Simulated assay, not measured.
Amino acid sequence: MKYFAVFLPMLNQEKSIEYRAQHLQYLEQKRNEGKIIANGRFADGTGGLVIYRVDSIEEVEQLAKQDPYVIQGARGCEIHEWDMDSDSALLR
């Protein structure tokens, strides 16, 4: 498995408010499938971050593009493979 940090920069605040429930429901579904290990918004309101744990860049691209925020144009989508430290608290 690989880890990917997906930045979701704010594009449209009104759409972000409108589609927030759908976005959070989508993330919960993917968390329950074991594909997301962490997520949250930036305190300064500029967007958020989702950490995916999947097999490939192609898989994370597909998942990230299915996020209601991305589909609806509320947020952008910037994907980076992440070499997580094996001692990270996320693994505990």
Rank of each mutant, 00 (worst) to 15 (best):
R92G: 10
A38H: 05
A74Q: 15
I36T: 03
N12C: 03
I36V: 12
Q72N: 15
T46Y: 04
E61I: 12
G48R: 11
A38K: 02
G73W: 02
F42K: 11
D87W: 10
R75W: 14
H23I: 04
Q62E: 15
L11N: 08
E61Q: 14
L49K: 11
E78V: 15
Q13Y: 04
A64L: 05
L24Q: 11
F42G: 03
C77Q: 12
G45W: 01
D67H: 03
D44E: 08
G76R: 15
F7K: 13
L11R: 13
K65E: 14
D85N: 15
K65A: 08
E59H: 10
H80N: 11
F7P: 04
R75M: 14
K2L: 10
I51N: 05
Q29M: 08
E61K: 15
E78K: 15
C77S: 14
Y19L: 01
H80S: 09
L8Y: 12
L90G: 08
L24G: 00
M84K: 11
V60H: 01
K15I: 00
E18C: 03
T46D: 07
D83W: 06
E61V: 12
T46E: 11
L24W: 04
N39A: 11
D67R: 00
Q62M: 11
Q25C: 06
V60F: 00
P68S: 09
L63A: 00
Q25E: 13
Q62F: 07
P68E: 04
L90N: 07
I37K: 08
Y3N: 07
I37R: 05
E58F: 09
G76A: 15
G45S: 02
N12A: 04
D55M: 09
K35A: 04
K30G: 00
P68A: 07
E58P: 09
A5Q: 14
Q66V: 02
M84H: 05
A64P: 00
C77F: 08
V50L: 05
L91M: 14
R31T: 13
T46R: 13
A21N: 10
K2N: 08
W82V: 07
L24N: 07
E59K: 15
L63E: 02
M84C: 09
Y52G: 08
K35I: 04
V50W: 01
E58G: 14
V54L: 05
I36F: 00
F4L: 06
S88V: 08
I71T: 10
Y19C: 01
K15L: 13
L27H: 12
G48I: 06
P68G: 09
F42H: 10
V50Y: 02
G76T: 11
K15E: 02
K35D: 03
Q66S: 13
L63C: 00
L8I: 09
N12S: 06
H80R: 15
G40E: 02
S88H: 10
M1D: 05
A89P: 08
Y69E: 04
V6S: 03
E33K: 10
A74C: 11
V70I: 14
I57H: 15
I79F: 01
D44H: 06
G48D: 02
